[in-house]
Design a protein around this nucleic acid. Structure first.
Lengths: 355, 355
DNA sequence: TTGTGCCCATGAACCGATTCACGGGCGCGA
DNA sequence: TCGCGCCCGTGAATCGGTTCATGGGCACAA
């Protein structure tokens, strides 16, 4: 006898969610037995088990996770606070995390801080309140005292895409110095001796490291910093790349190659080069960083430095689980090596080959 | 006197998380008073309040969310299960959702089903167990009985980017027929009379709708289906676009324009056109769908159909909150109109203008 | 027949918050 | 001086699970 009331949520307010004792009553057994059916079915006789299962279905019973977590302190969920969920780099990382967590039936709560420390704090708090096993964080600031405190309070913390400034906190990062060095060495190997570097603000760790990598490559090749023509742009996106490239093209002694601090920057730079009637790579070679998903799909596919994003996420999740299970002696600090992906923007499909 | 034991997790096992009664004891007040300080500070005298606050800080107390949810049934979290978190379309939608939820101090638990119904079910179950207020879902299958059941059990459900097949479930979608119609009308307006359509599998709702939109545009212009040269490709990505374009270019009577079912497909098609020495848009015009973030950054910026992704997410979250608060008479069904963004791939910067 | 042990089911105690009926103390008006 | 109310603070009851000490029933061996 269902009354179709005006309120769409009649069902919501009306019937209470079935609880474990409703099931027990329906099946004619005790509380504990239902719980055993759910968690340790082998300890219950088949007949009883069936009866309980039927009751569960009849009442469409779904156990209350809060009650379970409260009593058992189950700790099965892991939180992740990423810098920017719209960045393909981070979504790939998230995939890796999920992969690893899924293996052990853990689940992931995702959040994006959008580089805002306030949002980061809010999400960390939420995760802590929900009793997560641990958190994976790409901190929005260099300061990580709040993460140390969090870890002291019993929440496992692993830094993502950041080298840990403290041995107390585990971290997973990629060697940016090596990546940039590879990229520039590649350009040097193609004969370039004057290389433009479109870099971002030096407050960003990645920018500093990639610059260092470039210098290392030059030194190794017996050159000095004068072979590098650096411009600094405020934003690491296509507009920044356009501005940087415009500036470099205005120079008397124009570089023959460009190394861009990330792929979006490279994209803007390429657009500018074309607008000036320059061919890529014949007139100016271009190398980016990140190997975002569309780098290979551009009209002139972009040479770029690929980071093991998936592996980064997997490993971070793995460290977290190991630590949580007491398997880790002490916080681990993993650093991955990136890989250069050579495409037509540096080595033209016809001509310019290495042969 | 801290013992630096070999176990990194000494702190974890050792000290228990402070509870509300620890705080009460430390401050020399009762349980209820601490709770009042947290939730209804005005009912507590200032002196007591300060004392409790100090105790909270000393013990670095963080309330246990499970206990709170269990007792109060707070219902403050919302879950979202998206089809593919690596797709820029969905990350934009997620941003919109977060925006709206943040206004009311709700928080979002994100998950990606990767188009796998099993994963979708798992996450929905997790959300339900955690007592979420409701869920926003882009179902992986046409079948949505499980969502109806979920809603009957008291969890608000809103379909995301899907028209609801049932009036009982709210939905937010975008009018794909209109979007495709606009795109094709644009091409017809430029004088094209033979238009290639690179479409995906007809099991996907979007593909069906966009095809219908194209036909509607042709009919409206007094043409018939013979003006459409359709090829169907299995994957909605750049490889699919390449295959589709190759097929179309092999025809005796080559189309002068291409309408692609999404931007990735368009990207592949453009790559193929260039490889054949054809100029865009002078020889062949191209229009995509989705207006992904890099559409404007391509060497030849891509004309595309923009969907109000952010608004889609915002609205879905809004419907959910309204329904949860009993403000909605009955489930709403919102459909947005898309917008055509004209760029150089259809109307060359020089020449081909509409003037 | 009695004793031993195993299998299975029981239900009270507990997790950590919120809520609410209750009461002590104090001020104010009569 | 007495009584009424108000302001604060108290602590037991409660949410819905998990856990575990307890015990009934039965089979089998002595």
């Amino acid at each position: 006898m269902v009354t179709t009331s005006g309120r769409a949520d009649a069902s919501r307010r009306g019937t209470r969610r079935a609880s474990i004792s409703d099931v027990a009553q329906q099946a004619g057994v005790s509380l504990g037995t239902v719980s055993n059916v759910l968690n340790r079915p082998d300890r219950v006789s088949e007949a009883t088990r069936d009866r309980v299962q039927r009751a569960i279905e009849q009442l469409s019973f779904v156990p209350n996770g809060s009650a379970r977590t409260l009593r058992a302190g189950t700790l099965t969920t892991v939180g992740a606070v990423l810098l920017d969920i719209a960045n393909p780099f981070f979504t790939e990382v998230a995939r890796g995390i999920e992969d690893r967590l899924g293996q052990d039936d853990h689940t992931l709560m995702l959040a994006s801080s959008d580089e805002d420390p306030v949002r980061e704090h809010r999400y960390l708090r939420l995760f802590e309140e929900h009793g997560v096993l641990g958190v994976l964080v790409t901190p929005a600031e260099a300061e990580i005292d709040h993460l140390l405190a969090l870890q002291r309070r019993g929440v496992q913390v692993v830094l993502l895409d950041r080298r840990s400034p403290s041995p107390a906190i585990a971290s997973v990062a990629v060697d940016d110095v090596a990546g940039a060095s590879m990229a520039v060495t590649h350009l040097l190997g193609l004969g370039h001796r004057r290389i433009g570097f479109i870099n971002g603000p030096s407050t960003i760790e990645q920018c500093v490291d990639r610059r260092a990598g470039m210098l290392r490559a030059l030194t190794t090749a017996g050159l000095d910093a004068s072979a590098m023509v650096e411009v600094e742009v405020p934003f690491l996106n296509a507009d920044g790349g356009e501005a940087g490239a415009t500036e470099l093209l205005a120079l008397d002694d124009r570089p023959t190659a460009l190394f861009c601090v990330n792929d979006l920057t490279a994209l803007g730079a390429m657009r500018t080069l074309r607008a000036h009637g320059l061919r890529i790579p014949q007139d100016v070679a271009v190398v980016g960083y990140d190997d975002v998903n569309f780098a290979s799909m551009l009209t002139t596919p972009l040479t770029s430095v690929r980071q093991p994003t998936h592996e980064l996420g997997r490993t971070a999740a793995d460290l977290l689980l190991r630590a949580a299970n007491g398997l880790a002696e002490e916080p681990a600090h993993v650093e991955f090596q990136p890989e250069l992906v050579v495409r037509a923007s540096s080595v033209g499909a016809d001509g310019g080959g290495t042969a």
